[in-house]
Nucleic acid binder design. Structure first.
Lengths: 212, 212
DNA sequence: AGCTAGTGAACAAGACACAGCTCATCGACG
DNA sequence: CGTCGATGAGCTGTGTCTTGTTCACTAGCT
């Protein structure tokens, strides 16, 4: 899809006015670009985040010649998709169907997800504790498979999950960030999948300057 | 940078009207999301492209338990930054400074780029042949550093660049790759773009459905 | 005010990236 | 609407980087 087509599609949200659509698109992109360029991470909940990442100099090699070359350190843009976007892309959770020019936020969608979330998390934790290994796999898997419904007995699973955990990582050195993580709720209300996306990077050196 | 702040910044392009800004943002993001979800690659020249990629199932391992688990095949969103975006992020080429609510397109920008382009490329080729490496790097770097002016002596290198070229197109099958050099022209001569990254396809499978 | 999403860390394996070159298409301008 | 030209995409091969998982907290969003 070309930019032209995108503008055209966007025009639908502007009563067909392509001029406004074009302006909207370029404004948004330009703004994001500037922000990222400034070093600011642009996080858009439900969509993803744009961030400037510094790539250290490394030896790369020309595939055709096999000759080594070194690319010096440089900053590159990086985009991390948000949970909702992943769900939509993966097929779980379909957008409301809204396509006209209104309804900024669907009502029930999130609510349902929220309801499911609790149970999903509990289930996972419980399973883990139970065996911490083989059986757990099955259990957890099963749970994922059927997270759908809203949540039959969510409150039931509460229990104490943290048992097994503790300080998993001292990592790095000075800065002990704790952070943790994530509970992923069920994306789609019924066909969900249980996502659980997380990630991490292996101790980098963290960085610097937050600037502005 | 939160979405709120983004909207605020965006509002500047809408006479400070945050409502319109918010609408513009959500419209753009939503539209892109839907397109990508449909499987369509959304390519925005100068910014980047959003695409849906299918990631096959693979065995991953739970770091804490060491237990293998398999993530099933799933689709994930992918974003590839465009050339211009990269330049902006990396520091080369700064946006026009436009930040108010007008001037959608600066006058001389592209024109200049175009002018420089031809020579730049030639230069690159020549340089490559000449040294194929060190000098070229420096040269380009220097250029970046002093992007401002348009281009000191670019025309000089014109010479016979294409000489080295010929039928490179064997592509794929033909092992004889040429390899040459490269040289990315000066990224920011003035305000233009810079870069020389290219890629190409050579007949692949073309694209699937173009859809409407 | 309430609740959700995002983040971090370690370990392992797969995937993307880079470089350089070329073609086709998009994009902008008149 | 047409044209000029820049931009995007790919191959190839090596290697780095990312993803994936779990768990809990906190900040941001609604």
């Amino acid at each position: 899809m070309n930019k032209t087509q995108l503008i055209d599609a966007l025009a639908a949200r502007y009563e067909g006015n392509r001029k406004q659509a074009a302006h909207a698109l370029e404004s948004v992109l330009d703004t994001i670009t500037r922000e990222v360029a400034r070093g600011e991470k642009v996080a858009i909940t439900g969509f993803g985040s744009f961030e400037k990442t510094v790539r250290e100099a490394r030896m790369v090699r020309n595939p055709q010649t096999g000759k080594q070359m070194k690319s010096k350190k440089k900053a590159v843009p990086r985009f991390k998709a948000g949970q909702e976007l992943k769900n939509v892309i993966s097929g779980a959770k379909k957008l409301p169907k809204l396509t006209a020019a209104n309804m900024p936020k669907p009502p029930s969608v999130r609510a349902v997800a929220a309801a499911a979330s609790a149970p999903a998390r509990a289930a996972g934790a419980a399973a883990k504790k139970a065996t911490t290994k083989a059986p757990a796999t099955n259990a957890s898997t099963a749970a994922k498979k059927a997270p759908a419904k809203k949540a039959p007995g969510k409150k039931a699973s509460a229990a104490s999950s943290s048992t097994a955990k503790k300080a998993t990582t001292a990592t790095k050195a000075g800065p002990a960030k704790k952070t943790s993580a994530a509970a992923k709720k069920a994306p789609a209300k019924k066909t969900s999948t249980a996502s659980t996306a997380k990630k991490s990077s292996t101790a980098k050196k963290s960085s610097p300057a937050k600037k502005s």
